[in-house]
């Protein structure tokens, strides 16, 4: 796999074709010193991952470590982005290769890993499980084995922190799309994960809710790995991967990744 940390395209020249790329030079991200400096990461490593579904190659021979506080994943529809992030908490298991999160591999300890890896899905409506907001946030805590009084405290605290305490007693189906996505985030945050994966979290939101949600992602104390079509989100990220045709086509700083993706898409 070709890994590009720094891939500057000189103005006025076309980016080189994939085959023409030179060996990459890895460079530490300068952004890590910003607001996300306090973030500790569990250490995620994918080793020679291949995923097949119904005889089709979805992801092919991917080896990558994901240790930056803010990582974006972009790419065309059907390239394998969703599958890639589902590998990280064992929702998808690889046909070959291993996924390691901290000291565990998803093949052996997916349930343990899911305590550390929270997941916010694209469609907020389908990830809210319980008829009442409070019960929904409590659901994950119950799975962690917390006592009722502890759950109650944790639910209130999380809703308070996200500024949505007023939603606690609402019925899930009466929430707007933006409110639903905030509740989904609250449900994940309440479980105190070390990493939160977002799979196109703002796709179904209007501009205002999108901006608010982006702010929440940027302010998280956890590592965040964000699949998105919303390229503006990535501006302050530490690293962005571009997934094309089941491979990591580009890996580097946000600006360069977006340039690569724009050029790739225009072809």
């Amino acid at each position: 796999m070709i890994k590009y940390a720094q891939w500057n395209v000189p103005e006025g020249t076309d980016p080189p074709l994939l085959a023409d790329r030179k060996e990459p030079t890895m460079q530490a991200s300068p952004k890590a010193a910003g607001q996300t400096s306090s973030v500790t990461v569990p250490g995620i490593h994918l080793e020679k991952i291949t995923v097949l579904r119904a005889g089709k190659v979805i992801l092919e021979d991917i080896t990558v470590s994901l240790n930056e506080p803010r990582i974006g994943i972009i790419g065309p529809n059907g390239a394998g982005k969703s599958t890639l992030v589902r590998l990280l908490n064992g929702l998808v298991l690889p046909n070959s290769g291993t996924v390691q999160v901290g000291n565990f591999t998803t093949a052996r300890a997916a349930k343990r890993i899911r305590r550390d890896v929270g997941f916010v899905f694209q469609n907020p409506a389908n990830q809210i499980i319980m008829p009442l907001v409070r019960d929904d946030i409590s659901f994950g805590l119950k799975n962690l084995g917390l006592a009722a009084s502890e759950r109650l405290r944790k639910v209130d605290q999380t809703l308070e922190e996200l500024g949505i305490a007023h939603l606690a007693e609402r019925e899930s189906h009466t929430l707007s799309g933006g409110e639903q996505q905030m509740v989904a985030l609250a449900a994940v945050l309440a479980m105190d994960p070390r990493v939160i994966i977002f799979d196109e979290p703002t796709t179904m939101l209007d501009l205002r809710n999108r901006l608010r949600f982006q702010k929440e992602i940027n302010g998280l104390n956890q590592q965040a790995i964000v699949v998105t079509h919303d390229l503006e989100v990535l501006e302050d990220f530490d690293r962005v991967l571009v997934v094309t045709d089941g491979r990591i086509g580009f890996d580097g700083a946000p600006g360069d990744a977006v340039d690569f993706y724009r050029h790739w898409s225009a072809q």
Binding site: N89, R114, I129, N143, A187, M191
Partner: peptide, 21 residues
């Protein structure tokens, strides 16, 4: 599709159908 996505969300949030509360 709703069922599929919801089952994923349940799994992702640590629901274990084999344990009783």
């Amino acid at each position: 599709r709703i069922a599929e996505e919801t089952a994923e969300a349940l799994d992702a949030r640590g629901y274990d159908s084999t344990t009783t509360p």
